[in-house]
Simulated assay, not measured.
Amino acid sequence: MSANDISADDAGFLADAAALGHSAEKIASLDTPALLRLSIEDLFAGKIALVSSFGADSAVLLHMVAQIDKALPVLFLDTGVLFPETLAYRDRLIKFLDLRNVISIPPKKDRLATEDPETFLWSSNPDRCCAIRKVLPLAEALKGFDAWITGRKRFQSSTRRSLPLFEAEEKRIKINPLANWSAAQILGYLHAHDLPRHELVAKGYPSIGCVPCTSRVRPGEDPRAGRWRGAAKVECGLHTQPLTGVALQAAALAEEPLS
């Protein structure tokens, strides 16, 4: 099947989870670049963004998108506690790939002043720290978009092993184009296109988040084992609930962590 075989009717899955499953099955036979092109140019033209951490293997998806539309909105959550190497890598990839619409999204200053004035909330309440530095800023930045692209992959952790290609978030679609890629495929793509690597990967960081909550990964561990080590937390919250609706509005005001 080619992208030409996908009709406009396949975009009708926007608000219908059952239709989503049927359409995803039709589209799943496309290779990843074709699926991205279909999503960016046809299904969600002008209403789709890529959310990138500019992390360990972010260059793969960014490179694919740059071949389609260098001006596609790329949303980058600058939490204020990222590794300097991540910020440098972001700048390097922007130049290397000629990305023309990378939008850095910081947390709201008044929220930080009220809830995390000493930048130590990660220690006492990591869920709330992620909420005010990542989840709420992204929810606000995604307003007006019908779909967003993530770089999640099934091999990264046990919590992602059943990751689908498409997910319905109320009336918004989340696309995981690399869901079924293996670690070997990712590495092969990076080498094949001679893409720059994040400096911390060679130092034992296959998954890179904020400084206080990221540690080196030991041989044999899941790639994300170094995130929030020693805590029950395994996800930042971006993918544990829809980034829309009344629940999220309430979370913006709540003192309790997002669930």
Rank of each mutant, 00 (worst) to 15 (best):
D222Y: 08
D110K: 08
L112W: 10
D5M: 06
K143T: 13
A56E: 01
E41Y: 06
V65Y: 00
D222A: 13
L97F: 15
V201G: 00
G144T: 11
D31W: 06
L43A: 14
L178Y: 01
P137R: 00
D10A: 09
A56W: 01
N176T: 02
A202G: 05
F155H: 15
S158A: 14
N101G: 02
A247W: 08
S29Y: 02
A183M: 09
D69I: 12
A141I: 11
G188N: 02
R111F: 10
D31L: 07
H198Q: 11
D91Y: 06
H239E: 05
M1Y: 08
A184N: 03
P137D: 04
R111L: 14
L93C: 07
G220H: 04
A179Q: 04
D16E: 07
I48M: 00
D146W: 08
S104G: 12
V60E: 01
I105T: 03
T150R: 01
M64Y: 05
S7P: 02
F83V: 03
P73M: 04
R197I: 10
G188T: 10
P212F: 10
S53Q: 03
D31R: 08
L62H: 01
P219H: 11
K171R: 15
G209P: 00
V102N: 02
L136P: 05
A3T: 13
I186Y: 01
E256A: 14
I132P: 00
Y189K: 09
I132G: 01
L165Q: 05
T79C: 12
Y189S: 06
G46K: 10
P106I: 06
S7H: 10
I175C: 00
A192Y: 04
A251P: 04
F166D: 03
C129T: 02
L77T: 05
P212N: 10
G226A: 06
A131P: 01
K171L: 07
T244Y: 12
L50T: 10
Y89E: 07
L136H: 12
R216T: 11
D42Y: 12
K70F: 08
D91G: 07
S52D: 05
S157K: 07
P219W: 12
K70E: 14
Q156E: 14
L138D: 09
Y89M: 07
T32R: 10
L163W: 11
P164K: 08
L200Y: 00
A71N: 15
V234T: 15
R229P: 05
A18E: 15
G80K: 02
F155G: 03
L50M: 06
R172F: 11
V246T: 12
D9S: 13
D116F: 10
S29T: 09
L253M: 11
V217S: 05
A184K: 14
I208M: 11
T114H: 09
Q185R: 13
T240F: 07
E199H: 12
L14T: 11
F44L: 03
K109H: 08
E85A: 11
A147P: 02
S52R: 05
L136C: 06
W148Y: 13
L163V: 00
L187E: 15
Y205G: 11
